[in-house]
Deep mutational scan, measured.
Amino acid sequence: PKDEAKKKVKEAIKRGDEETAKRIAKKYNLDWDDAKREADEER
């Protein structure tokens, strides 16, 4: 599900692992900028 994928993307971003985050986002066709902004807001 997309929500689960987005959570994984945000967790990867918070760990500083943007490569993984981008790969997950691409795989699930998520909006990378959107997920990154959300992760930054939660930090």
Rank of each mutant, 00 (worst) to 15 (best):
E11R: 07
K14S: 09
I24K: 01
R43M: 15
L30H: 01
D34F: 08
K7L: 11
K22L: 10
K36L: 14
W32P: 02
W32N: 01
D40K: 06
D31E: 06
Y28G: 04
A35L: 15
R15H: 06
I24H: 01
K2L: 15
A39C: 05
R23Q: 12
L30W: 04
E4G: 07
K36D: 03
N29Y: 04
E38M: 07
V9T: 02
R15T: 04
T20A: 12
A12C: 11
N29G: 14
I13E: 00
K10R: 12
E11N: 07
K2N: 12
A21N: 00
G16R: 03
K22W: 08
W32K: 00
K10H: 09
R23H: 08
E4M: 12
G16T: 01
R23S: 09
N29L: 05
E4F: 14
E41V: 08
I13N: 01
D31T: 04
K8L: 15
K6P: 02
A21S: 05
I13A: 02
L30M: 05
Y28T: 01
E18G: 03
D40T: 10
D40R: 07
D3S: 12
D40V: 09
K10F: 14
R15Q: 08
K27V: 09
D3R: 08
A21P: 00
K6W: 15
K36E: 04
R23T: 08
V9L: 14
I24T: 02
K14G: 07
K22H: 06
L30Y: 03
A39N: 04
K22G: 01
R37F: 07
D40Q: 10
D33S: 07
E4R: 12
D40M: 12
E4P: 04
K26W: 08
G16H: 03
E11D: 13
T20I: 08
E19S: 08
D34Y: 05
R15N: 11
E11H: 05
D17S: 02
K22I: 08
A25H: 00
N29Q: 09
E41Y: 11
T20G: 09
R15E: 05
I24S: 01
K22T: 03
E11F: 03
E19W: 11
D33W: 09
D3H: 11
E19F: 10
K26H: 09
E41R: 10
R15S: 07
K27R: 12
K27Q: 14
D40F: 13
K7D: 07
E41A: 13
K6A: 08
K10M: 15
N29F: 06
K7P: 02
K7Q: 12
K6D: 02
Y28A: 09
A39R: 03
A12D: 00
E42R: 04
K8D: 05
K10D: 04
E19Y: 10
A35I: 15
K10V: 14
R43H: 10
D3E: 13
R15F: 05
T20V: 08
A35Y: 09
A39V: 13
A5M: 11
D3Q: 11
K36M: 12
I24E: 02
E19V: 11
D31R: 02
D17T: 01
D17Q: 04
Y28N: 07
A35D: 02
R43W: 13
D33P: 05
E18N: 08
W32G: 01
E41I: 11
D34W: 08
K10Y: 14
R23G: 05
A5P: 05
D17H: 05
D33M: 10
Y28V: 03
E42V: 06
A35F: 14
E18V: 14
K27N: 05
R37A: 11
K14L: 15
I24Q: 01
A39Y: 12
